[in-house]
Design a protein around this nucleic acid. Sequence first.
DNA 1: TCCCTGCGGGAAAGGGCTTTCTCTGCGGTA
DNA 2: TACCGCAGAGAAAGCCCTTTCCCGCAGGGA
Lengths: 357, 357
Amino acid sequence: MATLSDVARRAGVSPATASRVINGSSKPVTDELRERVLAAVAELQYVPNAHAQLLARSHRSAVGVIVHDVSDPYFAEITRGLQRVATDQGRLLMICNSYRDPDRELEYVELLRGHQVAALILAGSGYHDEAFTRQLNEKLAAYEATGGRVAVIGRHEHSGDAVMPDNRAGGYLAGRELCGLGHRAIGVIAGPRILTTTTDRLAGLRQALTEQGRELPERRIRYAEFDRDGGAEAAARLLDADPELTAIVALNDSMAIGALATLRARGLSVPQQISVLGFDDMPIARDVTPALTTVRLPLVHMGVRAMSLVLGVGAPTPRVEVLPAELVRRDTAGPVPRATRATAGSAPRARRGDASS
Amino acid sequence: MATLSDVARRAGVSPATASRVINGSSKPVTDELRERVLAAVAELQYVPNAHAQLLARSHRSAVGVIVHDVSDPYFAEITRGLQRVATDQGRLLMICNSYRDPDRELEYVELLRGHQVAALILAGSGYHDEAFTRQLNEKLAAYEATGGRVAVIGRHEHSGDAVMPDNRAGGYLAGRELCGLGHRAIGVIAGPRILTTTTDRLAGLRQALTEQGRELPERRIRYAEFDRDGGAEAAARLLDADPELTAIVALNDSMAIGALATLRARGLSVPQQISVLGFDDMPIARDVTPALTTVRLPLVHMGVRAMSLVLGVGAPTPRVEVLPAELVRRDTAGPVPRATRATAGSAPRARRGDASS
DNA sequence: TCCCTGCGGGAAAGGGCTTTCTCTGCGGTA
DNA sequence: TACCGCAGAGAAAGCCCTTTCCCGCAGGGA
């Protein structure tokens, strides 16, 4: 690999001058020398060694991002928001997937710290795990002590800047909607127990049901992986245990789509026989059939806000921005069947707004 | 930030010794000193400066990856394959999104070269653009000249190692399937004209039709962005221009899903009134309703192979691996309607299996 | 007793770049 | 004519590590 001094030698100038030309330094260089340097760069196909550069100008610019999995639409959307702001500011993003492994998360904090990132953003649910949380906070504190900025998205266990989707309110919205439609036998497909997001959404849901004098017994909750297959399987277990269910809430859209697949396989029509609610409103939610009724989270905006916090001027007190959830009514949630399946047997029921007209 | 010499000073040893302890060097260090160093590391929360390390051991290990967009399922799957192999070998991946911007692609090659990656993988269609192709090849050649390894996925304009999904054969498969089902009026939703992938898939499709004595006039092709909205819009334009269509081939699944949305909005039933074929078989294809008939590409495997090529021993001659496409029959492609809409004039026609039966 | 060997440790030389500091030579002012 | 100031270039000091090379010392064999 050609180095700067190769270029300098070829151009017949000092490395200092070559560097100034290449980096467009403010220090003036005569056109003559500039030309020569540029020519040498082109001839040698010179590309500066990024590590040497980063080392020399101990000037942190990149931003580290730790997400559960970028290819999960939830994080893809958040990342889009992060990127947008970062690009505007000419920042490079280093994105790491923890795949929901706390240890890997810890490792990545170190890795990114080692890479001298100017800021660190952790996106995705926290864990109900005291020891881990303490360790993480220690690492983050150490990082912040050296001038690093930290923001988290959707996890409350950290003391610094945070962007919080209102998971609890979202759960509440879902619950209220189903109650309003008359549902009583509601099953829940929850994410992993250890995630705080699961707990929060569940808490909101439960609150809504309780307020309406209904309840959410543990036997109507299934905990599964936060993905399509987890949802499909959990729906099956839920239905096996409790065929009376008239509605299922999935705590994210991927799981809801899995549930839809299970229902279709079992010949249950949605929403005539059973209603389904998702959570997150990922882009695909509108394209499944029937289109998914879900709780929307402003995912892109969450990313935008987090990156803005972290790149903006540091506030004396940590800022917490809570972003609202919103119910998006589409076609998977309908009124509870007049006669529940238990009474009516297996006869198909009319579609909502169909049979009557 | 604490540095290695801070650690050394605190432990009362030389930086050399500290380095040896921290990196588990083969050179022996007494337990006593080792302990002291480790203690100092813990107390100072020391993390080595990655740039300094990378600079000092001029040992390239990371691998650079340029894709169009990781959050696009097509690339997400490929990336999964890349990651799998890379992780097994303890390699770090640097992934960059070009968002189908050739200039950005060029920039990223430089960037990654500057970051001293051991290898470079370019995934995603090439461009019909002589000037760009030449520039890219020059840059890649320069990189290879300094010992870098290069592999491309799905683009043929590079001379080195390549993994090629058989786009043409896939297009052929799609065409043959539709011919077999009796379709004649076939519309195509193609990706951007400038992409070689578009051309290849289209060529295969056209070949199949031609062999069956049918044809694919330009007026039945719409070029659009390779995403859901592009597909939705192109389907609308296609239908407006040619209401006789009995089948639509979308050149990727995202566009097919968009087309499905348009058809649903227009009250056309799939596959009774019109058939739809996708391409790629991304995971969501089985979850839309009706489930998408599509051409499967071994996306994960493509990633696995590319990374293996690039990390394996260099072959004297560039290796090109062609990976087969495969038709996946699901529910969006059916036989051509008995009476095509053409014969029946423009009066609204009954849905198949509806009014007539 | 002397020399050689090998072990454990430190000194120092890079690795490739940025940037401050220093130097030279020129034009302009008194 | 003498001096000052400044523009433009280079020398050199880092940035933070790794790794080679070297040194001192203890133990073992002759």
